[in-house]
């Protein structure tokens, strides 16, 4: 096949290229995640972690209320269940990028290809994100079967809420991944730290009204707050205790939409900036370690 001067010039990346990269990265991510030395252990880990997290809250609830106020228990369980997605996405994206930089030392080879790192990162971490959905389902099943959670699903509301919410969380995860890549310190535990901090200001396990007033703006600006609220309405048929529960379903969905629409470009721009910074500082093939 003759190579003309025009054909030899480099063409930009198309959507088809990005999709191919994304698909390939999914396969890679799954191959890594499913490389269990002991599937039983993996199953235990997948179940024990989310159930224990919910169990802590359930025991706290039981110790204080003796089982009174079941609505609050439902509030706790739904928030705890959904928080697995936040943790799964954060750790999935950040761990993927750090693993590829420090364990497999492949990220520099991905960066020098014509493909963008972004679809690679998304695809690579999808397996871990998928596992977090299993945790959500498991926690909800236990909640329904054993803890009296009364599900009243409204799929017309729940599905768009989930799509928007997970998209927002992924955007936050992308931001975190870029940030961790540009750090010189070991950052393996940072996604958990960030997820833990968001735990505080998202109304995950207590109503936002309980927070000190000074933190309310942060809580109301976070898309995770509106995602959790919308998801509760979509699953339980009613909102959270407190001021946020008084808003209409439409308002909650609209705010979720707007906050997601804002966080996506911010996260992408930040990721690009972090990548430039990492390239400038020579961090793409750096190995931390102490």
């Amino acid at each position: 096949m003759a190579v003309t001067g025009r054909a030899a010039s480099v063409r930009g990346m198309t959507l088809a290229d990005a999709w191919r990269t994304f698909r390939t990265a999914i396969k890679l991510g799954w191959a890594i995640e499913s490389n269990w030395s002991d599937p039983f252990l993996f199953a235990v880990y997948t179940m024990a972690k989310p159930l224990a997290a919910a169990g802590i809250l359930v025991v706290m609830f039981q110790v204080i209320t003796g089982g009174q106020n079941p609505e609050f228990l439902q509030f706790l369980i739904v928030g705890s269940a959904l928080w697995n997605i936040v943790f799964g996405v954060m750790s999935g994206l950040v761990q993927s990028i750090l693993e590829d930089r420090e364990r497999y030392r492949m990220i520099k080879y991905v960066v020098v290809t014509p493909t963008s790192l972004f679809p690679f990162l998304l695809g690579r971490s999808l397996a871990r994100v998928a596992v977090s959905f299993v945790a959500v389902v498991l926690t909800m099943v236990v909640g329904v079967l054993f803890l009296g959670v009364d599900l009243q699903p409204n799929l017309l509301y729940l599905v768009p809420a989930t799509v928007l919410g997970v998209t927002a969380v992924i955007a936050l995860g992308v931001f975190m991944a870029g940030w961790c890549l540009s750090l010189r310190q070991e950052a393996w535990s940072y996604p958990e730290a960030i997820a833990g901090a968001l735990y505080l200001v998202s109304g995950a396990i207590f109503p936002i009204d309980i927070l000190p007033t000074i933190l309310h703006p942060i809580a109301y600006l976070s898309p995770t707050t509106w995602w959790l609220e919308a998801s509760r309405r979509g699953l339980l048929g009613h909102g959270s205790p407190g001021a946020i529960g008084g808003l209409s379903d439409e308002v909650v969905m609209l705010i979720l939409l707007v906050s997601t629409a804002v966080v996506i470009p911010v996260a992408l721009a930040a990721f690009a900036w972090f990548m430039r910074r990492a390239r400038r500082a020579g961090l793409l093939d750096m190995i931390t370690g102490s």
Binding site: R105, R184, Q185, M286, I287, T288, G289, S290
Partner: peptide
């Protein structure tokens, strides 16, 4: 022992 082609050590 000294091995070649390795990246062992603590970067910081």
């Amino acid at each position: 022992m000294v091995s070649g082609g390795e990246q062992s050590g603590y970067g910081l």
